[in-house]
Amino acid sequence: MSAVIETKKLTKFYGKSRGIIDVDLSVNEGEIFGFIGPNGAGKSTTIRTLLGLIFKTSGEARVFGMDCERETEKILRNVGYLPSEVFYYDRMRAIDLLNYSASFYGKDCTKRIKELSAALELDLGKRVEDMSLGNKKKVGIVQGLLHSPDLIILDEPTSGLDPLMQKTFFELIKRENERGVTVLFSSHILSEVQRICDRVAIIREGRILETKRISQLQENAYKKVSFTVKPGSDVRGFSVPGGGKFEVSGQSVSFIYRGDCNLLLSAIGKYPVLNVDISDPPLEEIFLHYYEEGGGASEHPAV
């Protein structure tokens, strides 16, 4: 399987400020690759370097085997990009903007624009300036996909989309992926990446901490667990192997857990439970935990 995106020791400094340091990425053809990290970690810097918007300080960046700085034009012919924040020419109607976008690819995208707009319930006759953030994002999705690119780069794509539209969006991306399109999906929301990606790279403070398969990630993922028991029950002695940071408050217990979910449920099931909540911890918490354990990536996987 050939690499569609490949970076080696890719480094970018903005003057003296850190952008990314020694980023090694390899995204294979046909996969949905998650790129996850907190805000300011270097996700957008990496993406902008790949797109030729900014220039690397050192290292290598290649897309479709081509150099990102010398062959940007050729690369961009087959790349669809959706930025985290979408800004378009306000006075343009959505359809005019999309036709303008299509004019750069030298192919008829009319049918595709109609299909995508219908799927996303986008009003093409509306002016961009009159649109909500969510609708502008929809315009962004259509303009990123209208030329049927071989690589889609999504930088925090779901912000501004309501849950139903997020579902439609993920279905669209999966459909694109099924026809062989490679997807680089950047996000700071772990569950989003887990939902759609095959592999994931974790970036923090400009450096890649780890790259692993989503299945491995889920095996090792910490969950935030809390449950409440009926009044009169004593939960002070609650413990479960794989759990940590137990906090008991009245009839409620909260803790983090990594391990077999069945063991967790049977441990909780010994109590007269009123309510259980199991969720992904925020990314920052995962990273914090990662460093607290102090073992580094290989010893104690963060997620």
């Binding site: 797109l51 918007l53 012919r77 790349v79 990009y81 930025p83 924040e85 800004f87 750069f104 303009q143």
Partner: peptide, 13 residues
């Protein structure tokens, strides 16, 4: 206007 990400990610030098 922050529209540069739209224009400069199009396949043009």
């Amino acid at each position: 206007d922050k529209t540069y990400e739209f224009l400069f990610t199009k396949p043009r030098k």
